[in-house]
Simulated assay, not measured.
Amino acid sequence: MTINEVIFVLGMIAIILGGIYDLIAAIGMLRFNDFYLRLHASTVGTIGGAALPTFGAGLVALVSPQLGELKYFIAGSAFTVAILILLTAPTGSHSLASTAYLGKIAKPQNLVVDHLKEDRGEKK
């Protein structure tokens, strides 16, 4: 087994795992009843279901002989997009959660301790 075949198999595994992450995120979006849990499920779907298959597609493109010299452009673009997704998805979900909490739009359910409320000096 050559290194190109190993990279191709790793890329295909990443693509398949991304599909599994998307399936798990979709089930979480349907089953969870709290805004914050659904936000977590959608973030898992974004990071695992978008960044991982994009990285896998970059690996597959990198060892694909049919693409010729274009394979480096496609692989580089895929890796760049995957890194951008990994950087922006957590930031966006944190912004949504902070806005929903501070704006009292979505009330957290079943909290035993609320450190954010304590840090802001609010009463229980």
Score class of each variant (00 low, 15 high):
residue 107 K to L: 11
residue 11 G to A: 01
residue 20 I to R: 08
residue 115 H to D: 03
residue 112 V to Y: 12
residue 86 L to W: 03
residue 95 S to W: 02
residue 65 P to T: 04
residue 38 R to T: 14
residue 77 S to R: 06
residue 49 G to M: 02
residue 63 V to A: 09
residue 7 I to V: 15
residue 78 A to M: 11
residue 89 A to H: 05
residue 69 E to W: 02
residue 17 L to P: 09
residue 44 V to C: 07
residue 119 D to Q: 07
residue 121 G to Q: 00
residue 28 G to D: 02
residue 9 V to G: 02
residue 53 P to C: 02
residue 86 L to V: 13
residue 89 A to E: 11
residue 23 L to W: 10
residue 46 T to Y: 05
residue 111 L to D: 01
residue 69 E to K: 00
residue 71 K to T: 06
residue 84 L to I: 13
residue 73 F to S: 13
residue 114 D to P: 06
residue 56 G to N: 06
residue 10 L to R: 02
residue 55 F to P: 13
residue 23 L to A: 14
residue 39 L to C: 11
residue 18 G to V: 09
residue 76 G to T: 00
residue 95 S to M: 12
residue 60 V to R: 10
residue 28 G to Q: 01
residue 110 N to G: 04
residue 75 A to F: 03
residue 30 L to V: 01
residue 49 G to K: 00
residue 45 G to P: 05
residue 72 Y to T: 05
residue 89 A to S: 11
residue 97 A to W: 04
residue 36 Y to H: 13
residue 121 G to Y: 01
residue 79 F to L: 12
residue 41 A to E: 11
residue 9 V to R: 03
residue 17 L to H: 07
residue 10 L to P: 10
residue 94 H to A: 14
residue 8 F to A: 13
residue 102 L to R: 09
residue 115 H to Q: 09
residue 81 V to M: 10
residue 34 D to F: 07
residue 29 M to V: 07
residue 107 K to T: 15
residue 68 G to S: 03
residue 84 L to F: 14
residue 14 A to D: 10
residue 21 Y to I: 01
residue 28 G to K: 04
residue 112 V to W: 05
residue 93 S to K: 09
residue 53 P to H: 12
residue 65 P to K: 04
residue 107 K to R: 15
residue 53 P to D: 14
residue 5 E to K: 00
residue 3 I to L: 14
residue 97 A to K: 03
residue 75 A to C: 13
residue 10 L to K: 04
residue 2 T to W: 02
residue 55 F to S: 14
residue 42 S to I: 00
residue 8 F to T: 09
residue 18 G to W: 00
residue 9 V to E: 09
residue 49 G to T: 06
residue 94 H to T: 11
residue 46 T to A: 15
residue 97 A to M: 03
residue 123 K to M: 08
residue 79 F to M: 11
residue 117 K to Y: 04
residue 13 I to M: 03
residue 55 F to H: 08
residue 33 N to A: 12
residue 20 I to C: 06
residue 33 N to I: 05
residue 85 I to M: 11
residue 46 T to N: 14
residue 60 V to F: 08
residue 9 V to N: 10
residue 124 K to G: 15
residue 80 T to N: 05
residue 116 L to M: 13
residue 63 V to K: 10
residue 105 I to E: 12
residue 19 G to N: 04
residue 55 F to Y: 04
residue 42 S to C: 01
residue 75 A to D: 07
residue 7 I to P: 07
residue 74 I to H: 05
residue 26 A to S: 12
residue 68 G to V: 01
residue 88 T to I: 06
residue 94 H to C: 01
residue 75 A to W: 00
residue 110 N to H: 12
residue 90 P to I: 01
residue 103 G to N: 08
residue 93 S to C: 07
residue 5 E to W: 05
